[in-house]
Simulated assay, not measured.
Amino acid sequence: MYVAVKGGERAIRNAHRRLAERRRGDPAVPELSLEQIREQLGLAVDRAMCEGALYDPRLAALALKQARGDSVEAAFLLRVFRNTLPRFGYSEPLDTGAMAVERRVSGAFKDLPGGQLLGATADYTHRLLDFALEEPQQPAPPGEEPEAEAGSGSEATGLLPRALAQLGEEALIEAPPADEGAPVPDITRDPPLFPAERAQRLQTLARGDEGFLVGLAYSSQRGYGNTHPFVGELRQGRVAVELVPEELGFAVEIGEIEVSELETVNQFTGDAEHAPCFTRGYGLAFGRSERKALAMALLDRSLRAEELGEELGAPAQDQEFVLEHADNILATGFMEHLKLPHHVDFQAERELLRALRRAWEERRSAPEAAE
């Protein structure tokens, strides 16, 4: 046994060394710095932060470098590191209405107070490979300012009114949930029980695998849940994070984070006592993660089906199905453990199968012997 253990340890050390070699690649090629990853692969950094449930662009860049670009492995590394950190309090709810907006669009309204801010987006590109990027890009010459963007006068302050405010004033859309000061459940301390509260559902979706959420949201658009909304407002930018220290008793700003927030306008609801009105879906994610925020908003609305008296029957409407399978860290761990040694289990299964075959052969040969 001692020889086997030592042999296994040596093989694992060799595997780690080979992994480091593959991570580094050709030594003749300059090594990526964390600053390069953070600045030039920003969307990958933002995704790792979302699914790792930790806002730290530098650590996310480190995790992506260590994981060789594998976003799930990078999120796993961040989640493990996050679990080592002390918990000393909770921040105040983010005031996204005071966001310093960099991008703000609406698919439902053409004319918005403050205007539409396209920002940095690939929505209007032709999705053709840009071979000019094969060569280093030169910065714009000094003094050449980009063309001013429509509505950009409000960008510095970020004080842009909510796009859905007008619908709210006309009572054409349901009111947002009232903040009654009740403590918000923390799924990292108390796993949700089903049926889960909306706050628990949104927390789980925010940490969920983007690809899984997009696939489920797409299924709801195709009829498996009947959720095909309008994008009421997408806003992206920086918001202040505030904390109330016990010794002070009032909120102080401790920093800023970049977020993407999205609200959808969905199908009508109403009954004999409530006038018909639009319903809402909501999503918020770290960084420039608008695809994630959009998928969250669609699934948030789908998961409210029972609350709104709608017929259930689609995967996107099943709380347990969506929430229990959204976390790619749990899913990856349970799936990839199959690659680890299961020799004893397999031998037991093999011996059982051999016994079953012997019994089957004896039954088959018994009638022949009787003849």
Rank of each mutant, 00 (worst) to 15 (best):
L323W: 03
A348E: 10
P185Y: 05
A44P: 00
L298I: 07
A175I: 00
L164H: 01
K65C: 03
D318E: 09
A165I: 01
L94V: 09
F76A: 15
E246I: 12
A44L: 09
G158I: 04
E256T: 11
V72W: 04
A275S: 08
D271I: 02
S260H: 00
P177T: 00
E169K: 06
Q267A: 14
G114T: 06
V45K: 01
F88D: 02
F81G: 04
R58H: 07
E73G: 07
I257C: 08
E147A: 15
L41G: 07
F250Q: 07
L262T: 03
G168K: 02
P27H: 06
G237E: 01
L248Q: 00
T125Q: 11
Y282E: 07
E362M: 09
E307Y: 01
E155P: 00
V259A: 05
A132P: 01
G287N: 05
L128W: 07
Q200W: 02
E349G: 14
F81E: 09
A48D: 03
V265M: 11
P229D: 06
G225S: 06
R82V: 03
E306T: 11
A305P: 08
G7R: 15
V184T: 12
L356F: 08
P245S: 07
A206Q: 14
F88A: 09
P93A: 03
L338A: 15
D300P: 01
Q40R: 13
E362S: 14
R238N: 12
D300A: 11
